[in-house]
Design a protein around this nucleic acid. Structure first.
Lengths: 194, 194
DNA sequence: GTTGTTCTTGAATGAGCGCTCATATATGTT
DNA sequence: AACATATATGAGCGCTCATTCAAGAACAAC
């Protein structure tokens, strides 16, 4: 009996995610989303109770579920090893050097912009970092078993370092998207495993 | 003959720097600075032509000149070696774990918040990263000469990696200020030099 | 066709934003 | 005292922000 909804909430959420990703939380206004989607403020607020902040948290979760797996690729597979870690880093570098990828990672940006003042956002970021660390640890353990890394390597510790390295890669890449610099960082990170 | 100025511009600049550091560019309003300093908008704008953005750039430069040298400490000395790099990293970890230091580094925060849209700010950030890289390279070369690192170490490349690592440390520390985690990152970064 | 329910609309709200300007004020010189 | 000059003041500019709400509109059930 009710009037049917004329827009797809997921479409709005997708636009919101992209805007938050590109410009950050504070720099993205509801007006932006209204213009980009054609959905008027009233409809937007009734579809997303909690307003802008709720929309932001949902965007973070959507990013985790849709974008992150795409970036991780085979690194999340159970057989992943050094090659898959390398593939992930190479993907990061490629993204940072491309015009569309300069925005970096929504979750890293959020860690800097909002983690200190927004526990909900910080929790999503921590979940992401933990997930990354899990992949890296698993891949390093596989590598150790196959003799692809030095025997003395502390796999869980090195995984934590690799996670930090890729966050750092994104900070450096954002200020200075220089291919030689980014490749040197990645190469030396891998040299340290051998 | 003119009426003398009743406030010290450097005091205002210092407050601005602290606010931008703690809360970021967008989240800091002129009204904030007016309240914090007692200096009224008109006086503020006449003392800092260019408004909020000029005040921000001046804050970045002030940070580079006053705060950064304090954090770098002996790492900028010509005799610096592995111990000084270690000292710098330990200082970062200490800061990230303390209530006052959770804001991280103004220049890293700026890299994420504004580098993509603000060339002036990005240039200051790049200058900072270059300075860090220079220190690290120099310290690693000293270390190599003293046999404190493995002979095969690529000093300039490892310096780039160390710079990225400390940026990553700050991202991780902001989302998850966990001592064991941060120490593990630092320990493994140094293990890789050995 | 009437009713009930949900959705859409877009003007309106009040607060806050960065910034300006006419006016008042404090000085050294004459 | 009167003046010239640089500063201080703070109300107020036009705008944007996130958010709300009363009114109209589209459907299914009856």
């Amino acid at each position: 009996m009710p009037r049917p909804r004329e827009f797809e909430p997921d479409t709005v959420l997708n636009v919101a995610m992209l805007r938050f990703w590109e410009r950050g939380y504070r720099a993205t206004s509801i007006e932006d989303l209204v213009k980009a989607t054609g959905v008027k403020p009233g409809s937007l607020y009734s579809a997303f109770p909690g307003g802008k902040h709720a929309l932001f948290l949902k965007s973070l979760e959507r990013y985790s579920k849709l974008v992150v797996p795409e970036k991780l690729g085979e690194l999340e597979a159970s057989g992943a090893s050094v090659a898959e870690i390398r593939g992930y880093f190479d993907g990061l570098v490629r993204d940072l050097l491309s015009p569309e990828g300069r925005q970096g990672c929504l979750l890293v940006n959020t860690a800097i912009e909002k983690a200190a003042e927004d526990d909900g956002a910080a929790a999503v970021v921590r979940g992401h970092l933990a997930r990354l660390e899990r992949c890296m640890t698993h891949a390093l353990e596989n590598a150790a078993r196959r003799g692809q890394v030095r025997a003395s390597l502390d796999c869980p510790g090195s995984a934590k370092l690799l996670v930090a390295t890729c966050q750092g890669l994104m900070v450096v890449g954002k200020a200075n998207p220089d291919e030689a610099l980014l490749r040197a960082i990645v190469d030396n990170a891998f040299a340290a495993l051998g």
